[in-house]
Write a protein that binds this DNA or RNA. Structure first.
Lengths: 224, 224
DNA sequence: TAATATAATCTGATATACCAAACATCATAT
DNA sequence: ATATGATGTTTGGTATATCAGATTATATTA
């Protein structure tokens, strides 16, 4: 049998479990804005110590989901009203910027890899149906490659954070099915703009691409 | 005398001191990419316990400046090459998006406050010289009001984080002097776009405004 | 000698204990 | 009756101890 490679990040620490759990609860509205999150209480409820709770709360504070007042307590932010739409706008902005930088900074090797990725995806899209799962995965890889090409850890990290929100929101909407992307010509067009090192065009096309796929998600959410 | 109001955040915890200190060190290159940041060592060097160190490292990890591999350690990110220019592009994107949302969501009262702020700034800009300090402050307030008008804590928080980077980078460049803004007509134009609820225009004007002021900063940096 | 098993050690992950600020309560003095 | 001050409780901030995975050094064996 093939040995499964354990990627870093698969090992979930208590901190990460707490983080995800609290983020979901806040976004879902289970934890109300203004609510007092007591470290000891949370630790007691979850049956763990306060240390992982602390770390998770600090990260949530940095994300803006909670506010910690020294010596007083940590409270759910009163402005947690970010709609799915706004989140997707934010994602589009960041991914667009990422594409711009990729167009400016990608090496020839990376460019070649991206070309091969496009070809792979086009091949899979012809095969249809049976390979849908892999296609979704390869689509994600395409975006990951562009983020990597931007060579900017801060922007990449911000995108990852937005993705985490996005997922939490989709959980709330009971909308697990990841959008199977249509219009693969868009991917090719993004690639071509990057390949021509046309930063402006690359950003614009990526932004539009994300927003268009976003519209599908929003449509599905409203049809519930 | 006027009583100084103590704002939350003025009380700096050890965690915040460590956070700022490490961020500066990483951005300045004092801590090299790939370098192993040992919690015990750092705690020893700073003469404190590991708890505040942990919390700071988790936040830096969330920012993308360090990477923590479970059970192995925390290392300075190998991709900390974010130029000032890229950071300012990021800021421009986020502030632009913020202006877009503000145009869509600001209440009439907030709009009125913004109008008064513009008038105040125009008055100060006529007074010149003697009131320069206050003008810089009021300029910042103008941007804060727009961020608040966007009513999106996540985007606002992201902008604040970028600002923290921006400041750390300027420290490195020994470029403390905050840009005294020229072209106040730009502020008025942004206000007008928001007032007309023209989201597209508001975003575009804000983005251009930030990028234009950015060019001044970049010019100063290169002239050193 | 080289490959492998084993023990010592390093390090982050987690748990627990204590400290000090903030707040609420109640007593006391004016 | 109100303002002031003492006191106890709550809570985050910090320190320290323990646990367990990962690494390295060392010993053992083919």
């Amino acid at each position: 049998m093939a040995i499964k490679r354990i990627e870093p990040g698969e090992i979930k620490s208590l901190r990460d479990i707490v983080l995800e759990s609290l983020r979901d609860a806040i976004i879902s509205g289970e934890l109300k804005p203004g609510e007092h999150l007591k470290e000891r209480d949370l630790a007691g409820q979850m049956g763990i110590s306060t240390t992982p709770i602390k770390e998770a709360l600090r990260i949530l504070g940095h994300e803006g989901l909670v506010e910690t007042v020294p010596r007083r307590g940590t409270f759910v932010s009163t402005m947690v009203d970010s709609s799915v739409e706004e989140l997707l706008m934010l994602k589009a902005s960041l991914e667009g910027l990422s594409a711009r930088l990729a167009a400016m900074k990608m090496s020839e090797e990376e460019m070649e890899d991206l070309r091969r990725q496009i070809q792979l995806m086009e091949k899979l899209s012809c095969a249809k149906e049976e390979k849908r799962e892999q296609l979704t995965e390869e689509n994600e890889n395409f975006h990951v490659m562009i983020r990597a090409g931007a060579k900017n850890s801060i922007i990449t990290q911000m995108i990852m954070n937005v993705v985490a929100y996005d997922q939490a929101i989709r959980k709330r909407a009971l909308q697990f099915n990841v959008e199977v992307e249509e219009g693969f010509s868009e991917h090719r067009q993004i690639y071509e703009a990057i390949q021509e090192r046309n930063a402006e065009l690359a950003e614009q096309r990526m932004k539009n691409h994300i927003m268009r796929t976003a519209e599908n998600v929003l449509k599905n959410l409203k049809n519930r």
